[in-house]
Design a protein around this nucleic acid. Sequence first.
DNA 1: CCTGTGCATTGAACTAGTTCAAGAACGTAT
DNA 2: ATACGTTCTTGAACTAGTTCAATGCACAGG
Lengths: 192, 192
Amino acid sequence: MFENIDAFVNRCANFTKNELDIFHTLIDFKTVNKKEYLLQEGEICNFEAYVLKGCIRNYFIDENGFEVILQFAIEDWWVSDIASFHEKKPSKLYIETLEDCELFFLTYENKEELLKRVPKFERFFRLMVQKKLSSTQNRLINTIAKSAPEKYLDFIKLYPTISQRVTQHHIASYLGISAEFLSKIRTKLSKQ
Amino acid sequence: MFENIDAFVNRCANFTKNELDIFHTLIDFKTVNKKEYLLQEGEICNFEAYVLKGCIRNYFIDENGFEVILQFAIEDWWVSDIASFHEKKPSKLYIETLEDCELFFLTYENKEELLKRVPKFERFFRLMVQKKLSSTQNRLINTIAKSAPEKYLDFIKLYPTISQRVTQHHIASYLGISAEFLSKIRTKLSKQ
DNA sequence: CCTGTGCATTGAACTAGTTCAAGAACGTAT
DNA sequence: ATACGTTCTTGAACTAGTTCAATGCACAGG
């Protein structure tokens, strides 16, 4: 049950059996059906969730009513609204399951408890956030500097599994282009 | 000398006089003239720098030779290439002073030493990276979802001081639009 | 078997933003 | 004062990407 998540945390710092046992008592396993919301705009995000199985999207609705997908999360990813979670302020994001999911939830209180009892987790979370920041910066650079076809090719190269599990509408919304234009890009690419 | 940076770190966690003294022995004060590089593409970034005085830009050159500014750093900001710094891999970024600067440098080795001697700094750095991540996510959302005039108005609202210290060419390159188009936006706005 | 619903495609008209080239405005060194 | 580099502005032609509406297509439900 805990193999995957243990392997994940051990990649960043080496934890003892005992430390992992404490960790296990503080995370909650839950299954969530497809098309349910873990978080909606206005709520305060009280969890960080690890995806053991399934697929999730984290998105935002802009002033014109457009969905912008910030992140897909599949197996071995974490999902949360970090701004809302840490500053306990209402979220601007939606987190929705795209498939039936098996998840581990870590609440704010349990995270603090974990950090108190196993301070080594400070380092784990710092490294995790650093990695996330550096990939977000990369995405920002690509979003600004690359053309739509380049962004699409990068996406399917970087996330081959995700690109086969989500609709093209979702991919377009992640890339920040219209679904129609993505379709035109795809037909053009397939003709080459 | 250390008042500003001490106030900065104390905002995240409360440090004792003694802990701050250790911190002070591990950071290096340096002045750097205008238009010098703290980092260039291909180098490994071995520092995180706190800006006591001055203005810095952190940018990237894309395949078509365009500069994309990732960050401006003025007084009380930190600047680094976090991907290069933490994974010790060659940087894709340039970090250049736009004014004469007074900086504190924290090297990789000194940071590790600091974390070993004052573990409370783990928490400080985690919170700092979290904040940075959440602002980068915000910027990503804006970059994808907003029109160029909106982005510009947001920028001058969010960074009124910066927008008066850097050229419009730099602002355009931060916003991901051409300098000419920014100029057209500005004349249009001023006519209203 | 038909029917509805959600997803992908296509085309035509449109628009936001780019590119290029020329000129204006400004500070500063000579 | 003049000349020079640097920044900013303006216009005209262009292009990448959008919008809207129509069409096809697959597959789940009755």
